[in-house]
Design a protein around this nucleic acid. Structure first.
Lengths: 198, 198
DNA sequence: CCCAGTCAGTCAATGCCTGTACTAAATCGT
DNA sequence: ACGATTTAGTACAGGCATTGACTGACTGGG
């Protein structure tokens, strides 16, 4: 262990009083996903003017998304030799057919720079082919190679199986309810006050 | 533009046939969030055995989470001089009180290494204080400094206002429905077959 | 009491992603 | 027809996150 403790004079009484939130042992047992409820309640207790429900909603939403992503990436994509991001690009090309790089960026929600980077390795590894766009010499057109498409399909199938395993806690009615509600939020995301890439 | 087009011999007929997914011009107009529906339908059309609903669900879920995160981070946390990740650590400490670093990692869902890195800058900037854990010389105990706590509150308020703005498309009934459904997924995430960090 | 195994935190290497700046190509107004 | 503006892709610097290896500290069985 190399790093030093915080210099005494810099923190004054940081460790002296109960401060914001005295230790509660039970919290140590909480997991990533289980922490949300405790956190929202505690925050609401200390700052009652905040919107408790929205807090829980966004916190839960982002944690689940991150848990699902981590699970699928580490169990499917990494073992297959791809990153989640690389897969997203290939999936977009598989679905949409040959596209300009900037379209890939907007379809996947990545920056143009990120797409440019990822394409470099996808092309090097033979999954994607590029050519100058026939009608616009500034642009490039990328598409899956036959080999890329062939390798994508089984990985996508595994990916989907994993998705289905997660979704299996919900019955059909609940799934369509959830999809419905998420789509409402989705519509919200297209309103002008929301910050988006580019 | 420096990079070359894909060498001809490496891609054979990649650009010759219709291949997987011939170009459909309308796709160019789709946005990040709008692409999901098209993608799911197209994928279902080509691989009908896959689970269509789960696909939409997970795709929509992760895109909304990413859109919300990007919006809040770029409109609230970056302007305040913090990263989303740094804020998450401070928030966890604010809620949970002084904790060991490894607890912070599990509460925030980050790796121990990531927490270690972020703590370095949070401590340097005076938001967080550390000391060796009194009962275990391997561990450190971190907590918010009074200044860190003081600066966290208004940023958190802005954060929450933004959350509330997103959630405002839903009425109270829908919010609690959504929270309910997300909690079911959350429970799923704690089952043993799900891959988690550590 | 001590050695083997475990555990906490850190470091190094690597990869993703962002914002900014730049180059070259297209486009628009006059 | 041409200069000013916009646009597509890329280079670069910097932050964040992951895995894996390492160091030093605890723990429990012989």
């Amino acid at each position: 262990m190399t790093t030093l403790d915080t210099p005494v004079d810099a923190v004054a009484d940081a460790f002296s009083g109960a401060g914001p939130g005295a230790a509660v042992e039970a919290v140590d047992e909480l997991t990533f996903l289980g922490f949300v409820e405790h956190a929202a309640n505690e925050a609401h207790h200390r700052l009652p003017d905040l919107d408790h429900t929205s807090m829980q909603l966004v916190l839960t939403l982002s944690r689940i998304a991150s848990a699902v992503t981590y699970d699928i990436e580490s169990s499917v994509h990494r073992p297959a030799g791809w990153s989640w991001a690389g897969f997203r690009i290939m999936f977009a090309l598989w679905v949409a057919g040959p596209r300009e790089a900037k379209t890939v960026a907007s379809l996947t929600g990545m920056s143009r720079a990120a797409v440019s980077n990822l394409l470099r390795t996808l092309i090097r590894d033979g999954y994607v082919a590029r050519r100058t766009h026939p009608d616009d010499a500034r642009a490039i057109e990328v598409r899956l190679t036959p080999s890329g498409a062939a390798q994508l399909v089984p990985v996508f199938a595994q990916h989907n199986a994993r998705e289905a395993a997660w979704a299996a806690v919900l019955d059909d009615e609940e799934k369509s309810q959830l999809l419905n509600l998420l789509n409402k939020l989705s519509a919200r995301g297209r309103e002008p006050w929301v910050r988006q890439r580019d």
